[in-house]
Design a protein around this nucleic acid. Structure first.
Lengths: 203, 203
DNA sequence: TATTACTGACTAACAAGTCAGCAATATCGC
DNA sequence: GCGATATTGCTGACTTGTTAGTCAGTAATA
């Protein structure tokens, strides 16, 4: 009777599997309320093994945030940077799509974690700022400059803060995080914002 | 030798003092990381006394949120509802002031607590929604209707979501919660938003 | 003298982090 | 190939530290 082995050794895959499990757990319960034991069970391993790959709970937390940031956000930003559309087409196309996607994506979970745990992990906040926020804002700023050079936007566009584009996205995200079930027409919010911005910027 | 008494009995004031101390502690460390012992020390009492007035940590938490909500937000909303200015004056005056105040007010702390602890306290979220959000949005909606009746806004103003006004305020708030030290010209953000909205709404 | 707001030491429970031993695989000798 | 042996990924019971919540006793007021 060929016994099923109790476990398989999978040194290579464990870190990623643990990080994925931890992300799920943190997303559901937050950092403080998540037990390492939970994470381990989700990953189908014992608690002890978690500590072989991540020395502390905090280290695991940071790995999770960076993991999500790198794997998911990166693609979105690159997508925004490489485009040959006119400014208006770009805003109503890829940019709008991007904004619609974010509030329901893992990025929202990371934001929640940063809001609640950020103050105790300043280096993580710094990392997030440099790798996501600064790059994202930079991309939009570059886009505005290109629009002015092409004569699609008036000069004053250069003074606009990129944040102005993202405000309704932010509100939608927070709304979903707090009032999960209360409806909100977020698409309309974002579209209206972009309409107003186009009117405001057009040459 | 008339000894200073070790403590005074102040049944009436304790609950409020404890709630105030708890608010400070939660603001600094979040709900999970705050020890009841901390709260008690801040309030200048023993840990045991806290439990005389609040049966559990959770009950104290809810009391704190409701306390802040009732004491501070209420005044702001009423302020917005009673005004005899023209719509534009109102937007550029009281409404803008309100928006500028919120991100640095205790409301921001409550938002942080709701984002991180909300999912585990649905009744608290519901309470906040009804007493703050619904009323706030209602006030803005009423204001838009009045503007249309007076002929200051075009008919389509009625379709605008009140959230559109608040989006930059929300972004500013979250920005401050996460990136405390990174600068952001939030006044400009809000003013630009109101400019654009006025252009968009004007008859 | 009676009442009760208040103290602070205590308990109970839970969760992070450790580690001795086990069992799955890699390696070696034949 | 194949069994013996070495290596190490992995387990799970254990220790340790922390904190929510209790309660017998004390001292301030009525």
């Amino acid at each position: 009777m060929p016994q099923q082995p109790k476990y398989q050794r999978r040194k290579e895959d464990r870190p990623q599997e643990i990080a994925d499990a931890a992300f799920e757990a943190f997303a559901e319960n937050g950092y403080a309320a998540t037990r390492i034991d939970d994470v381990a069970r989700r990953a189908g391993i014992s608690k002890g093994l978690t500590y072989l790959y991540y020395k502390t709970k905090e280290e695991l937390f940071k790995a999770v945030v960076k993991n999500v940031v790198i794997r998911r956000v990166d693609a979105l930003i690159v997508d925004v940077e490489t485009s040959a559309l006119s400014s208006e087409e770009f805003i109503r196309g890829p940019l709008l799509d991007f904004m619609k996607k974010v509030p329901g994506s893992p990025v929202a979970i990371v934001i929640r974690l940063l809001i609640s745990e950020g103050p105790r992990h300043p280096d993580l906040v710094e990392y997030y700022y440099e790798n996501v926020v600064a790059r994202g804002l930079g991309a939009i700023r570059g886009f505005l400059e290109r629009g002015v050079e092409r004569g699609e936007f008036r000069r004053e566009a250069l003074e606009l803060q990129p944040h102005q584009f993202l405000a309704p996205m932010m509100l939608s995200m927070i709304w979903r995080l707090i009032f999960t079930d209360k409806p909100l027409d977020t698409d309309n919010l974002m579209e209206t914002q972009l309409d107003m911005l186009l009117t405001h910027l057009r040459a």
